[in-house]
Simulated assay, not measured.
Amino acid sequence: MKSLKKLVILPLLLLGLMVSAQETANRFFYELSFKPKKDSAKIDKVMATLDIVKDKSIYQDFTITAQDSIIKMAVEEMQKTKAWKDLSKTIKMPKFAFKIYKMYPDMKEQYVDRISKNLFAYEEAIKFDWKILSDKEKIGEYNTQKATTEFGGRKWTAWFSTDIPFQDGPYKFYGLPGLIVKIEDEGKNYSWLLSGNKTVKNWKEFSYVEELQAQSGMISNEKKIIPKDKFDKAYAAYKQDPMAEWRAQVPQNMLTMKMPGSDITIGEMMKNQEKIAKDFFNANDNPIEVVQVAEKDKKKK
């Protein structure tokens, strides 16, 4: 009976893997222009994506995923030579680490981010009060119509196209009768512009790096949904000491050991990673949602 069970279960598992591997996504590329510092006129730009599959959409910074093939080649070279290479010197780092999941059809949203080794999320039921106006404009190849709303302490103007039949958009925005082609706040702190789209066959939810690290046990890609207040508390502690969990698991005597095929020690590598993390956290003091920050500041007082 046990062998019969195995014969039945194995094909089902293989079928499940084949089905998941063959999932197709509609990927929309958005150029995000933003002011990382409140008191500066400097504008940064990053490419973001909105991947739409049958049961959800995922919005994220596309920087790491865009470099999948380069990273894969570098990793394969390290495996071949048995020598460690500091990829942080050659790989462009993302500006934003979070992802936004919108679960179809109810559009319940999940804010997802990695806190040290684990993937945490909190759920939100956001309803946008859109005012659809009569103004129309051609943006690129798209015929669009204007709409406005208020969200996160900012006033937003969006241009949507009914030619693209998805009631979705970048970041947390959704709910218009067509895909959002452009959206920006009144002060132009954040501005998304649709720059292209493609069909992604054999779509995968995680990048090559995320899959590789999860397979090696370095991180977990299993999403843990927790209350927002617990998420905020855990993330604040992580920002304060981003390498705390790693240090707790690395014996003191290993810190002076050198990385394979390298002159850098494990301790030095961890210090470098800590600096990268802290530079990332300090790079932006102008959040998309200013209301949340204001509420936190009130609680501190």
Results as ranks from 00 to 15, higher is better:
M1F: 12
L7P: 07
L13H: 00
L13T: 03
L14G: 08
M18S: 15
Q22I: 12
E23H: 07
A25R: 10
R27I: 06
R27N: 07
Y30A: 10
E31I: 13
F34H: 00
F34P: 07
P36L: 04
K37E: 11
K37L: 14
D44M: 15
M47R: 15
V53W: 00
V53C: 00
K54I: 14
D55P: 00
S57M: 09
S57R: 01
I58Q: 08
I58K: 11
Y59I: 06
T63Y: 01
I64V: 01
T65D: 06
K72E: 08
A74R: 05
Q79W: 12
K80A: 14
T81A: 02
D86F: 14
D86V: 09
T90Y: 12
I91T: 05
I91K: 12
P94H: 00
F96P: 06
Y104E: 04
P105M: 08
M107I: 14
Y111V: 11
R114F: 02
K117L: 14
L119K: 06
L119R: 10
Y122N: 00
Y122D: 09
Y122H: 01
S134T: 03
D135L: 04
K136H: 10
K136G: 05
E137T: 05
K138T: 08
E141K: 12
N143C: 04
K146W: 02
T148S: 06
F151V: 07
F151E: 13
S161H: 09
I164N: 13
P170S: 00
G175Q: 03
L176S: 02
L176A: 04
L176P: 01
P177Q: 07
P177C: 01
I180D: 09
V181H: 03
K182S: 10
K182I: 10
I183W: 09
E184P: 09
E184D: 11
G187S: 15
K188R: 15
N189P: 04
W192N: 04
L193V: 11
N202W: 11
K204Q: 13
S207R: 06
Y208D: 09
V209L: 08
L212N: 05
I219R: 06
I219E: 05
N221K: 08
E222C: 02
I226P: 01
A237C: 05
D241L: 00
M243I: 14
R247Y: 13
Q252I: 10
N253E: 15
M254C: 12
P260I: 02
P260C: 09
D279F: 05
F280N: 02
N282G: 10
A283K: 12
D285N: 14
N286W: 04
N286A: 01
I288W: 09
E289C: 15
V290N: 11
V290L: 13
V291G: 11
E295P: 05
E295K: 15
D297E: 15
